[in-house]
């Protein structure tokens, strides 16, 4: 369980985030939505340990978060792959960092690549792949690092609608077999309602949480239009 208490983050004099309280249960998908530039990414990067908070506390299972760690992997919107490494070598990187021996690195990487539907592409360079395929590789790389929390920063934001849908389904598929905590940032309300168990709406200046909406039927299976309307209303009131 990740606990965020009275978190504030600032750059020099300006306060970006203020008074954020969140409790993220293990294995849940929490989606953060908000207008562009509202500091969604800052929340995520602070959880990753890339930003030092100026106030408040973040703990993962009771231990305070002070720096970056393999237990909190960040997925980027695009270009997060190392362009000089092949698909396989990109996926092998977190395994190498974890100290997995070379031989099992290779086979583990290949099985993750297969898992995200990219078998046959192991030796391709990122620039030879489409945007959607590159995000599949990022997903494989993130999963290979075996994180307890996946922090996803608009990972499908640069993809076309069809590819985005396929990626959402892939994420849900992988998650349902291995329920990791996911904190997912998006500005797409439909994506938020489809993926999230709960959706936190951010807004204001400095940014704080406007509302937290429970999604009654996460990942399909029922009518979520009330939750969707509630999120839209909360978003509207922040603008």
């Amino acid at each position: 369980m990740m606990l965020i208490e009275d978190l504030s983050v600032g750059y020099r004099e300006t306060s970006v985030l203020h008074g954020i309280d969140l409790k993220i249960e293990a294995g849940e998908i929490l989606v953060l939505v908000g207008g562009s530039g509202c500091g969604k990414s800052t929340v995520l990067r602070t959880l990753a340990g890339l930003h030092r908070p100026s106030g408040g506390a973040i703990t993962l299972d009771g231990r305070p978060i002070v720096r970056t760690s393999a237990e909190r992997a960040l997925v980027f919107q695009e270009d997060g792959l190392l362009p000089w490494r092949s698909v396989r070598r990109n996926v092998e990187l977190p395994l190498a960092i974890r100290g997995v021996p070379r031989i099992s690195r290779r086979s583990q990487a290949l099985s993750w690549i297969e898992r995200v539907g990219l078998d046959g592409y192991a030796d391709h360079l990122p620039r030879e792949l489409s945007g959607g395929m590159r995000q599949r590789v990022q997903l494989a790389r993130t999963l290979a690092s075996g994180p307890r929390v996946i922090l996803a920063d608009e990972p499908f934001g640069a993809l076309d609608a069809q590819t985005r849908r396929a990626m959402q389904l892939l994420l849900v598929d992988v998650w349902s077999q291995q329920p990791t905590t996911i904190v997912f940032v998006t500005h797409d309300v439909d994506e938020a309602v489809f993926l999230g168990d709960r959706v936190a709406v951010l807004g204001g200046r400095p940014t704080s949480i406007r509302s937290i909406v429970d999604v009654p039927f996460p990942r399909g299976g029922g009518d979520n239009s009330a939750a969707r309307a509630e999120i839209l209303a909360a978003l509207g009131s922040t603008q």
């Binding site: 990067r45 970056t68 237990e71 960040l74 792959l81 990187l93």
Partner: peptide, 14 residues
Amino acid sequence: LPVVWEEAVLTMGG
């Protein structure tokens, strides 16, 4: 160098 590569490696525990 784009910071995103460094951040990727840091959040893998590098």
